[in-house]
Design a protein around this nucleic acid. Sequence first.
DNA 1: GGGCTGACTTTTC
DNA 2: AGAAAAGCCAGCC
Length: 103
Amino acid sequence: MKSEVEVLIYSILSAIPRGRVTSYGQVAAFAKLPRSARLIGRVLRHLPPETTLPWHRVLRADGKIAFPPDSHNYRRQKRLLEREGVEVSRGKVDLRIFGWQGS
DNA sequence: GGGCTGACTTTTC
DNA sequence: AGAAAAGCCAGCC
């Protein structure tokens, strides 16, 4: 049974275009849930591994991947990002590609 | 119910 | 630039 916020977050995620990224806090703010960045992470956590949602386009506010660099998830996210042309150097992406919808 | 935990963020050293 | 600290908010014992 999916809650309202889950569905809302899903729709926001799917709206992030290829080659762009955003942060947990940004998604939260966009969902009208300020101060709830951790909520986003919690929702993504329960996402099935075979999801088609672009969860990998969500990074921390400083542009770094939210996983420890030696973890499996870290490598998976990095691979997915680079597959769509996003450069990840030293665990970080260029902050200029943050945000979406114009700007 | 109270305390702990974390796919977070911001401020302060 | 990197680390520590404090804020934040739900879910889970």
